[in-house]
Each structure stands twice: as structure tokens, then as C-alpha cells.
């Protein structure tokens, strides 16, 4: 079973993503802030990290930089989940070494397939 770590501070967004992805058979881990996200990522080595770029305790970009620099996570796909304008989000993802970005609100019918593509 593939494990996905979702780092997201908004409860409603978290639940929506969990519902969609658990239905597809993924194991979901959750962190509501960046520090907790780093701890869980380093302990659990998830197969994919879904990261909200606007976190309450640190900038999402800084968090990506930390995760990208961690030895066990170099090849883990990191996907930015953001409400930022699409062009800004895409530029951010490229510059910080994310594997991609998905803009919020997520499209429920396409989301599972988008995630599956990053895990192939």
C-alpha cells in the first residue's frame, strides 16, 4: 500500500483529500504544520508528499527546500497543493524542485488520477 503524507493546515481541505485518496486504497498521513511535516516525513519516508504552500509556521517553499535536502527524501515526489494563481504556483514548483503542483480547489474527479501519475 502506497503512503501519502499530506501537509495541510486547513481541516476541510485535509478531509476532502483524505476521502478521495483513501477511497483509492492509499494510506494517508497528515501534518497540520511544517515542523510536524518534517518529523513525519523523516520517520515514515512516504511514497509521495502533498504539500500546501501556505502553512502557518513556515513558508511552504522553505519546507520543500528542507525536504529536498533530506537524505532519505531526495527521490520522493513532492507535489505542491496551492490556491495561488496557477502561473505563480507552477513557477514556484519548478524553482523549488517540486515534481508538480495542483491548484486548489481540487477537481475531485481528476485528483486521484493526478496523484497516481506522480506515483508511477
Amino acid at each position: 500500500m502506497k503512503t501519502i503524507l499530506q501537509i495541510e493546515d486547513n481541516y476541510a481541505n485535509t478531509r476532502l483529500v483524505e476521502r478521495v485518496l483513501e477511497h483509492q486504497g492509499y494510506r494517508l498521513l497528515h501534518a497540520a504544520d511544517g515542523r510536524t511535516g518534517i518529523d513525519i516525513a523523516l520517520q515514515e519516508h512516504p511514497d509521495l508528499i502533498l504539500l500546501d504552500m501556505g502553512l502557518p509556521d513556515m513558508d511552504g517553499q522553505t519546507l520543500v527546500a528542507v525536504l529536498r535536502g533530506a537524505a532519505g527524501l531526495v527521490h520522493t515526489p513532492i507535489v505542491a497543493l496551492t490556491a495561488w494563481p496557477e502561473a505563480t504556483a507552477a513557477q514556484m514548483a519548478v524553482n523549488y524542485g517540486c515534481d508538480g503542483c495542483i491548484t486548489k480547489p481540487i477537481n475531485v474527479t481528476e485528483f486521484a488520477e493526478q496523484i497516481a501519475a506522480y506515483l508511477r
Binding site: 493546515d9 495561488w84 494563481p85 505563480t88
Partner: peptide, 9 residues
């Protein structure tokens, strides 16, 4: 739902 959401703790 802000243009650039920047939450804080």
C-alpha cells in the same frame, strides 16, 4: 480565499 493566502500561527 485570498489571492495569496499566507496563514500564520
Amino acid at each position: 480565499d485570498y489571492l495569496i493566502p499566507m496563514p500564520m500561527n
